[in-house]
Design a binder for these strands. Structure first.
Lengths: 224, 224
DNA sequence: GTCTATATTCGGATAGAC
DNA sequence: GTCTATCCGAATATAGAC
């Protein structure tokens, strides 16, 4: 028997942590769990996350995760909200550009880059691959705010009407998807994204911007 | 004891099935298994296919499936090839249109419709959802042929160069993806697909086709 | 080729003490 | 909130008889 547990004079009773301090610790741990879940998802696939592995990474036993999440689907819900918030914050962090069209291009670039950085994040946010997973209303909140932001920028650039907005979303989603599939981490599709915005979704009367680094589409004998 | 097994005069020995007859029966069973696998995937999700359930549906015991497929990933491989072949055959079945642009539009419509008809098929063919699954070279063969066909049609319509072809693929994929997500089975995005082809990927000198049912894009105050 | 029986592993989730 | 212990079910895959 060692004396490691011998009485020391200091009583057992820790100074009771204030309720909000406890809440902050809890929130921090939740955040850490979600972050490790992303990391695991990148390794094993989104559906391949194991709660045992996850618990290991955050120094918990597997059942203890249930103190933070009601179920595995609930964990996906938190990851979804986290991912949507990352996207929203990235767009808000940038200094908005004065010119409406430039700003629209910038936001599309943000989105395409965002998607290409992390394939599984893209999958959870924009593809429905987890059977039974449906984001809760709360988890959808940052997604709604992003959509709102996008709609505003489109309107400012002269794109209005549901049909136009839908078409725009579809094309941007396609670019993001291709970027993810073909050139993750690359810049190639970002350039194409800009071209699409400039050709298809801006006022035809407006003179084309003078950007020598971007080819104008010709549809005839395009180089390379 | 019934007399169901009483000797009948006809000897046990069945006329030995010819080797190719046996091969045909085997191929037919494989096809049936794949078909039921699609059906199960639609119900439970692509990753949710259970070999037990699948075996039930084709009147086999679960281990017997291993007489037809080496593993579950191998089954996904067969499904992938099957799906790609369906797409290819649909495009080849149609009478090709004389006008190159019309033909290009038609093939895009084929693809978007194809994707929207079956979400999980779209997922297996065009999204990478199953961890560890990579289509074999053999399974990729119909996919290669489809790409070839598409490249031909694009060239005929005056779209050339890797950059143009990539952009086209991205946009079509985006349309397909949106159709799947927002309006499965509907025709809405097929219409938009046509519009994209006509705006972005055809010779600007060519007069626009006279199709009163399709709005020309205005980017200003589009209705609805 | 099909079966029965079983190996093996792993999954998510719960009970209850502390 | 965290632990230990455990439940229960399901999964893919293999062995070996017929």
């Amino acid at each position: 028997m060692s004396d490691r547990f011998a009485p020391t004079g200091r009583p057992h009773q820790r100074p009771t942590a204030s309720p909000d301090r406890r809440a902050r610790r809890r929130a921090a741990k939740r955040a850490r769990i979600v972050a490790e879940a992303w990391s695991l998802a990148r390794r094993d696939g989104l559906a391949g996350i194991s709660l045992r592995d996850l618990a290991d990474r955050v120094d918990l036993q597997q059942p203890s995760l249930y103190a933070y999440f009601e179920s595995k689907l609930d964990l996906y819900g938190s990851m979804f909200e986290d991912g949507q918030r990352q996207l929203l914050e990235r767009c808000l962090a940038r200094e908005p550009l004065a010119d409406a069209r430039d700003e629209l291009v910038a936001i599309v670039e943000d989105l395409v880059r965002f998607s290409s950085e992390d394939v599984v994040r893209h999958q959870l946010l924009f593809q429905r691959t987890i059977p039974g997973f449906e984001p809760s209303d709360a988890a959808m909140e940052p997604a709604r705010r992003f959509l709102e932001l996008m709609t505003d920028r489109l309107r400012a650039a002269g794109v209005e009407g549901q049909s136009e907005v839908d078409l725009f979303s579809a094309i941007v989603a396609g670019l993001a998807h291709q970027q993810v599939a073909n050139d993750p981490g690359g810049d190639r599709w970002v350039v194409l994204a800009r071209r699409v915005v400039e050709t298809l979704f801006t006022d035809a009367d407006r003179p084309p911007p003078n950007r020598p680094d971007i080819e104008r589409p010709t549809t005839q004998g395009a180089p390379q």
